[in-house]
Simulated scan of single mutants.
Amino acid sequence: MTLPLNFSQETRVVRSPGHVDSAVGVDELISDNENVRHQRRRAARRQRAQRPKQGFFRTLVQIIGELLITCGIILLLFVVWELWWTNIEANTAQQAAVSQFAQEFQGPVTPPAPAAPTDFGPPKVMDAPELPSTVFGIAYVPRFGENYSRPLVEGVGQAQLDTLGLGRYDSSTMPGGVGNFAVAGHRQTHGAVLDAIHTLVPGDKIYIQTKDGYYTYVFRNNQIVMPSRGDVLLPVPTQPDAKATERFLTMTSCNPRFGAEERIIAYSILESWQPASVGPPAAIAAQVAANQKGQ
């Protein structure tokens, strides 16, 4: 059957009940989403407007509080570093220096026989090291612990005391010399080599080992002085006009233990010495042997 030329055919879409045109449905969803977003933005603006505004003083207080908390944390970390970590670093460096010196030491590590001679004449005194930070000996102080042994180093600058232990004042004599062999050491940080200096009692022995032998000093007394008291380093401590005839050991450190307002000075005098070739004093023989083994 042929349709007439003027017949306009309509194309009709038959939809089932409940069907939603896809194009119309998407437009409606987009419009709904836009409305929801606008409503949310208006609600957020109203909520911000209802919040009380902070005044300048309140903001300043908050900033200062945060700064104080930050400073407190930094200070705490500094204290931990100063009192804990510096000791770990210094102890490691000092033990390495002691082990190296002991392994290069020429001489037996067993004490002499009880019947061996004890008079070896005047002590041999080594020349002062030419370079700062040179390790020239080991100090043993049984009062500070049966395993206490610390390196003796040339110089009392920060480079020496912060790392290597007991530093010698270059104005003083060497171990065993007539006059004053004077050393300095930290008390609470960087190895705390003289932390227990206040525990010394008269009669305590302090042993010094060099390449030439062993020097035994006996502690006499201590003294608290101001940092400006340089006369404690004189050949005869605190006596500027006296001529030295004895052989002193002077140890200096900060006082009190957690401060530096004063200085604590420990004075000792040489009791005896023995050459390296005869072995160490019996009181430190075990520690001398342990140092040589690197223990």
Rank of each mutant, 00 (worst) to 15 (best):
A159N: 13
V288T: 10
S133Q: 15
P280A: 09
N221Y: 08
A159M: 10
A286S: 15
G191R: 04
I269Y: 00
P4Q: 12
D231I: 03
R51C: 07
P227L: 04
L68H: 05
G55H: 02
D27S: 09
H198V: 15
E34P: 00
W84Y: 09
Q9S: 06
A276G: 11
P275W: 04
P123H: 02
A128C: 04
E10P: 12
P281V: 06
G18K: 03
L76A: 13
D212K: 08
D170T: 15
L68Q: 06
G155H: 03
L194Q: 03
D170N: 10
S228Q: 15
A96Q: 14
I264P: 00
F105V: 02
C71P: 01
F136C: 05
R42H: 09
Q295I: 11
M174Q: 15
L75V: 12
G155D: 09
V278Q: 05
T110Y: 09
A196L: 13
T199D: 12
A90V: 05
T92D: 11
A282R: 10
T216P: 00
S277Q: 08
A260E: 12
A102R: 02
R51Y: 03
Y267V: 11
A23N: 15
Q106D: 12
D195F: 06
G279M: 07
R48V: 03
V225F: 03
V80P: 04
F101N: 02
K211P: 00
G25H: 04
P256C: 10
R45Q: 10
V153S: 10
F136T: 02
F248C: 08
A289E: 10
V24N: 06
P227Q: 07
V183N: 05
H19N: 00
M251A: 13
A43C: 04
S172Q: 02
N35Y: 04
G294S: 11
V80E: 09
V183K: 01
D21T: 01
